[in-house]
Write a protein that binds this DNA or RNA. Structure first.
Lengths: 144, 144
DNA sequence: AGTCAATTGTTGACCAATCAATTGATAAGG
DNA sequence: CCTTATCAATTGATTGGTCAACAATTGACT
């Protein structure tokens, strides 16, 4: 019991560290922040999205979305326009420059990912995916 | 290949989200921030430590350590004194009040951990631990 | 129409981490 | 000794996230 509690604490510790390392190294290697990469990638895959749709997909605060998009717009990686049908919404779209950036960091990204999981079997990756989904579920759920 | 790249991206995404959720919920439930909990817990287990030793154990920036300890000291959860043998070092120790706080949040912490892993078998936890260690290793290693 | 509620985005204040520069203490080598 | 290098802690600036307050727009109900 206490044993497993200690183990869980250690796993949470590892989660935190892995996330930090991966986030830092991703940016060092590819030249773009992981979150902004995710935003661009999502826009590439989904086409036009409102900010709230982006927020729901990326699961980060809307304020953070607004600020990232402001920067991405300044760099000419996305453009934003109010939705004529619903002026509350801002429709975001990736630019050609944005697509270029994504392609640019593609090989570095791929290499980075490969190295991160180089000593994992396909079976392990499958199992890890399942467990991560369970943990996402469990940690999403509010306490009752 | 591309398939696995996409999967890895998703796993990294889940890592990030799990970490954020766990960190937030831990503080909501126990009333103490996860990092500061880790600091107090480490001090409880190890006794006196210099800040650099704490830094190495917790693997976060020394500047962050300094700031956390400042707050913990203000709340009277730790005390700090220069090492007489080596005045560069600050020796940190947990106070009785600090120990009390740890005990206080113990049941909430335990319950939180249990809920987080409630649908995991012992075997799964073992496998997860192994994979997390591998990922820690892989992400620590500098790129060459 | 007219009010009231809900939705969307923006902004400001805060927190936690990073890096870089600084200070003060010690160690090492001439 | 004295200089130089190294080490530990601190501080300031920056980044990326949270929440709360706000504004503007739309929807719903009478």
């Amino acid at each position: 019991m206490d044993q497993s509690c200690e183990e869980i604490k250690q796993m949470i510790f590892m989660f935190k560290n892995i996330d930090r390392q991966v986030t830092q190294n991703f940016e060092k290697r590819t030249g773009i922040s992981l979150t902004r990469y995710e935003i661009l990638y999502t826009l590439l895959k989904c086409g036009q999205l409102s900010q709230i749709e982006l927020q729901k997909k990326l699961k980060i605060d809307q304020a953070a979305i607004t600020r990232h998009l402001k920067i991405l717009e300044e760099k000419d990686f996305v453009f934003r326009n109010r939705n004529k049908q619903n002026n509350r919404e801002v429709i975001v779209e990736i630019t050609d420059r944005g697509k270029g950036i994504l392609e640019n960091c593609d090989s570095n990204r791929k290499q980075f990912f490969d190295e991160l999981f180089h000593n994992f079997t396909t079976k392990e990756i499958q199992e890890l995916q399942i467990m991560l989904k369970k943990l996402m579920d469990n940690s999403d759920k509010p306490h009752c």
